[in-house]
Design a protein around this nucleic acid. Structure first.
Lengths: 188, 188
DNA sequence: ATTATCTATAGATCTATAGATAATGC
DNA sequence: ATTATCTATAGATCTATAGATAATGC
């Protein structure tokens, strides 16, 4: 039954990865500890050897998801430094992202859950948000103050556009919401 | 125990109102049928005489919340037809709205829950979203196509800005997110 | 000897239903 | 007679813990 220290650390990482995916797919209250552990190939009794509580795991899962997102943004911006906003918007506001919440932006899928969670969870997200805003503001041309305002408003438009596109019932409207937000950000 | 038909209809409305508030505050899975009924001054056994299921109530609560929001937007736009976007943005992206999710925008607080819910729930929201977009697009100057794109991107920025401002841990950053998004929409 | 994981369970909660009760509406 | 609400409960699920097991690490 017992595994090596190394294997235990890998197991722990796998629990966080599974949680990061399933929380984003089903919401924090939409998946239980037992199913998370099953997803990682373990039984649920072992959970509390790795984490203090389910909310503790949420904080770690959010931290990992947003860190991954920061790296993704960095690569996108480096790939197309002349049009960072268009590059990010086209990828963020894609049908693929809309239909893959489990691997997508943690704010668009768990933002309200995080808002209702404890401070440690919110703190885990905030660092990544700041990093992404700083990164985007630096990549935008013009006065620093104006660039930062544009970075914030553009980030907000991407998140809101994705939340809307996922929530509506009408497939044509959903596509229009994505396309219109991209178009507006491309010309901004 | 039994009440009049009229009183029963009022009770039903009160259940929907309580649900619209508590779902937005605590999330769909964050509040149970028993507590919703208690909030309406009833016992939980009576719930299923009024609704087929908890998700059925979610659909009604979303419909009522978004309908109220549509009316709110109409009044705001009528009050300041020369600057509909600034008028809406300053109210939507206020600290008061941020700190009062239970009475606020249903998309910013329940968007991801709705995305994970069944079609009837999503359908209940979609009508209101269309109404708000049409209303805002009509109120904006310029070519109709461009006005609609701006309406969509502005709506998205408001929702995303509020979700972000609620999710972060840092009060200064939260304020900046609201203010920067407002400023950007005012000059747009 | 230590410890990562397991089985089993406590205790609380959840949605939904069954059947009793008592007031309305005919 | 009908029905809105009540009490009580079924059956499933939830988070968290206790204690056993068996392999690691000294």
């Amino acid at each position: 039954m017992r595994v090596s220290r190394e294997q235990a650390a890998l197991n722990r990482e796998r629990i966080v990865d599974v949680a990061a995916k399933l929380f984003r797919e089903k919401g924090y209250d939409g998946i239980g500890v037992a199913d998370l552990m099953k997803g990682a190939g373990l039984t649920h009794g072992g959970f509390y050897g790795h984490f203090e509580s389910k909310e503790d795991l949420l904080a770690e899962a959010c931290a990992k998801a947003i860190a991954y997102s920061v790296e993704h943004w960095r690569r996108r911006i480096d790939r197309n430094p002349g049009d960072p906003l268009g590059e990010l918007a086209r990828s963020y506001l894609s049908e693929m992202h809309r239909d893959n919440a489990g691997a997508g932006c943690v704010i668009a899928s768990l933002g309200p859950d995080v808002a209702r969670a404890g401070k440690p969870v919110q703190h885990a997200l905030t660092g990544g948000v700041k990093a992404q805003l700083d990164m985007l503001a630096q990549a935008l041309p013009g006065e620093p103050e104006e660039a930062r305002r544009r970075a914030i408003a553009s980030y907000a438009a991407m998140i809101g556009g994705l939340v809307l596109a996922r929530a509506v019932d009408d497939p044509e409207l959903s596509k229009e919401l994505l396309a219109a937000t991209v178009a507006q950000l491309e010309q901004a």
